[in-house]
Simulated scan of single mutants.
Amino acid sequence: MRAAIETEGHCMRLLLVRHGQTPANVDYLLDTAVPGPGLTELGVRQAAVLPQALVEEDIEALYASTLIRTQLTAAPLAAARGLDVLVRDGIREITAGDLEMLPGDTEHGELYMRTVFAWAAGDLGLRMPGGEDGAEFLARYDAVVAEAAASGAQSVAMVSHGAAIRTWAAARAHNVDVPFAAAHRLANTGTVVLEGSPADGWKALSWAGATVEPAGEAGPTGRPLTDPAD
């Protein structure tokens, strides 16, 4: 089993896992409202194999957002490890606001992704049309991460959402920048592994199974900067 490396202070291994596939993912819709849809048949299968995919991780605490899809994704892992799923609103998807349920593979999705990556670049006052701003998003996500770190757990998994994970990682991990996050879309049940602490900062160790390398130029993420919120 892999465990967090001890450095000065408490160093935590943090696994940010995107939920399984939903009907809105299939249709490329900006679907962010609570409680949201469940999983597709493929999403259920993805959740079922998550325990095996993370078998080498010594997970001590498991979180999910207030959206049904993350809780359904976390359930097989919770059962396999004998863990309770700690449901927290702070790690839900970035609110689409006025863009809710609009097509994500159009200018609507481009605006959504442009906004969240602007937050990661430091423009925290920019507001999603009809939704939250960057400071509000990072504050709620940071609060859940801080709670997990304060628990003393060495390794924590959080089942969250694609845009939220990519934006938070780009804003908080010192070796992940916006071009990297924009160029690396996270597939359903894809995992970003980080190590660090709220006090000392974070380093991304792997992104969807690949070691994190220095980011190059910004590029498309399957559908250029128009990933549907999930």
Score class of each variant (00 low, 15 high):
Glu6Leu: 07
Pro198Tyr: 07
Glu57Trp: 00
Ala150Phe: 03
Arg18Cys: 09
Thr7Leu: 12
Trp168Gln: 14
Pro23Gln: 09
Ala24Asp: 13
Gly130Met: 12
Leu54Glu: 03
Ala215Tyr: 09
His184Cys: 08
Arg2Lys: 01
Ala218Pro: 06
Lys203Tyr: 01
Ala135Ser: 14
Gly162Arg: 12
Ala135Thr: 10
Arg140Ala: 09
Leu83Arg: 08
Pro51Glu: 06
Ala80Tyr: 00
Ser197Val: 14
Thr40Lys: 02
Ala3Leu: 01
Pro228Cys: 11
Gly219Val: 08
Glu147Tyr: 02
Tyr63Cys: 04
Leu124Pro: 10
Gln154Glu: 11
Val17Thr: 07
Met101Asp: 13
Val116Asp: 02
Gly152Met: 04
Leu29Met: 10
Pro214Tyr: 04
Ala64Val: 04
Asp31Pro: 00
Met101Tyr: 06
His174Met: 15
Thr32Ile: 04
Gly109His: 04
Ala163Lys: 13
Glu213Val: 15
Ala183Thr: 14
Leu205Pro: 12
Ala33Leu: 08
Leu54Asp: 03
Asp230Gly: 11
Ile165Lys: 14
Trp207His: 15
Ala47Lys: 05
Leu29Gln: 13
Leu42Cys: 08
Leu86Trp: 00
Val212Asn: 00
Leu16Tyr: 03
Leu62Gln: 10
Cys11Ile: 11
Ala169Gln: 13
Gly190Pro: 13
Trp119Leu: 10
Asp142Pro: 09
Ala4Phe: 01
Tyr141Thr: 15
Val49Met: 02
Ser65Asp: 07
Val55Ser: 14
Ala199Arg: 11
Val159Tyr: 03
Ser197Thr: 15
Asp84Phe: 02
Val144Thr: 13
Leu77Thr: 12
Gly125Arg: 07
Trp207Val: 15
Val34Met: 04
Ile68Tyr: 00
Asp84Val: 07
Ala139Glu: 13
Pro179His: 05
Gly104Cys: 09
Ala183Ile: 13
Arg2His: 05
Arg81Cys: 06
